[in-house]
């Protein structure tokens, strides 16, 4: 029995330590991020941030678009099969539009970015740690958080919400195609229904979620990289861990957000 308590206690302390490390790293990144901003910061950091934006955002756009189109179709078809029984096919538009702007757009994007970029952050920083590049930065009087993490975080804060908007548009567009081919609903009428279904608050809340998801992905990915010890095999483990932990935390954060909005009467 004592062993069970010891094991539970040990795991709890481990998780608290992890969350604490994430918070410390996050605050340090926020302070360091000033140097990555254009005009007021270091131009080399801003260039690095732009490069990261291209990698996180532009390079992932086709993947996120395709995922959203497929999900949009699935969502519309599943919705139509149920709502059609009640003669409420028109509400498939509401289902797709609200579903994507509030939930699916930011969530699909976060899962895609977590798999692509979160793992890449962990692998890159982990490799830098193994090859003494992080130590090399320190002895050059450069802060690894400022030099490596801050541009990635800034890029994620900008690229993830942008990708979410793309995901929303693609998902809703897929719904439009389905509605056109199933009940010949014209695109103009579809767009009108979409604007009736969603309001600005839905879009803003979706974007806020994206910013939080981007924070989780960048911070978890980089922390896993910084925690690499030993040889190249631990880089592989940290990469897997980055994807698993960031996806899990994104879903937990989404559930918390949705519960807060629901119970505070926003939705």
């Amino acid at each position: 029995m004592q062993n069970v308590f010891e094991s539970v206690g040990e795991k709890t302390i481990e998780h608290l330590d992890y969350v604490g490390s994430l918070n410390i790293q996050w605050w340090a990144t926020l302070r360091a991020m000033l140097h990555s901003l254009p005009f007021v910061g270091n131009r080399y950091r801003w260039r690095a941030a732009v490069r990261q934006m291209l990698e996180i955002g532009v390079d992932a756009m086709s993947m996120v678009s395709l995922m959203s189109i497929c999900t949009g179709f699935i969502f519309a078809m599943q919705g139509a099969s149920e709502l059609g029984r009640f003669g409420a096919l028109r509400y498939v538009v509401d289902l797709v539009a609200v579903g994507f702007t509030r939930e699916l757009g930011p969530l699909m994007t976060a899962i895609a970015v977590s798999g692509r970029s979160g793992s890449a952050f962990a692998a890159e920083i982990g490799t830098m740690k193994v090859t003494e590049e992080i130590d090399s930065l320190r002895v050059m009087a450069l802060e690894p958080i400022e030099f490596v993490l801050a541009p990635k975080y800034l890029a994620a804060l900008i690229a993830v919400p942008c990708l979410s908007v793309v995901a929303n548009v693609c998902g809703i567009l897929a719904g439009a195609l389905f509605m056109f081919f199933s009940i010949r609903l014209t695109p103009v009428l579809y767009v009108r229904y979409v604007f009736e279904a969603i309001d600005l608050r839905d879009v803003v809340l979706g974007l806020i979620k994206s910013v939080v998801f981007g924070t989780i992905i960048a911070q978890v990915g980089c922390l896993e990289g910084f925690r690499v010890h030993g040889g190249p095999d631990s880089v592989g483990r940290s990469t897997t861990s980055a994807v698993v932990k960031s996806t899990f935390l994104v879903i937990v954060a989404d559930a918390i957000f949705t519960a807060i909005f629901y119970f505070t009467g926003k939705h």
Binding site: M128, E133, M140, A141
Partner: peptide, 19 residues
């Protein structure tokens, strides 16, 4: 420590060049 680092040049065993 940062000030001190500016007066030291270090070449690591693995070279540690940024790839």
């Amino acid at each position: 420590l940062k000030k001190m680092h500016r007066s030291i040049g270090v070449a690591f065993q693995s070279a540690a060049l940024f790839n």
